[in-house]
């Protein structure tokens, strides 16, 4: 049997969940043995194979139209989609801005911030993606496995990946279930 193909990507997050993935130390070699690691944001190949992968892992919530594209692309190219970390699962820290309007958030970031002088302005190039309300991954595409945590701990990620590699759906519960 061919090794299952795994792709990962990140959206509105802090990359911390990917760092936690690396935090599994030498066990990453074990994961590399079990799976065929395809694209990730921290390796050369950035985009999941058009021909599809078995497992897609997404970190971060969805806070603009570009993230939406990433989410839809991963969903359409993977069989099992994993929401990794609090941002992908709940919206996380970026979702704090949902208590304000997008205009208020942009004004605060580009005009009112303490480090901005009088010439601050909100970027408006047509090539830029459009900011949206921050959403959890499952609000945009169907999710198969939720792995909450800020970040999820390396042992949990190792458990999730090794279960998926061996064709089982991981059951995240008890000591592996932590929302932060």
């Amino acid at each position: 049997m061919a090794k299952p193909k795994v792709s990962t990507d990140w959206m509105a997050g802090c990359a911390g969940c990917h760092m936690s993935l690396l935090d599994m130390d030498e066990r990453i070699a074990k994961i590399a043995e079990l799976v065929d690691l395809r694209s990730t944001p921290i390796t050369d190949l950035k985009v999941p194979d058009e021909s599809g992968v078995d497992v897609g892992v997404l970190e971060g919530g969805i806070n603009n139209t570009s993230n939406e594209e990433v989410a839809h692309r991963m969903r359409s190219r993977c069989k099992i989609l994993v929401a990794l970390g609090d941002c992908a699962v709940f919206g996380g820290v970026p979702a704090m801005r949902n208590f304000f309007t997008i205009e208020e958030s942009l004004r605060r970031a580009y005009i009112e911030s303490e480090s901005t002088d009088d010439s601050g302005k909100i970027p408006s190039d047509p090539e830029l993606c459009k900011p949206t309300k921050v959403r959890a991954l499952h609000e945009v595409v169907p999710v198969d496995v939720f792995v909450p945590g800020c970040p999820p701990n390396a042992d949990t990620i190792f458990y999730v990946l090794s279960e998926l590699a061996q064709g089982r759906i991981p059951d995240v519960k008890d000591d592996k279930l932590s929302w932060y």
Binding site: A83, F90, K173
Partner: peptide, 14 residues
């Protein structure tokens, strides 16, 4: 945790 909730089926209304 006791009920094994991994996510919120309904997101908050902000």
């Amino acid at each position: 945790y006791h009920e094994g909730m991994t996510h919120w089926p309904l997101q908050p209304n902000w």
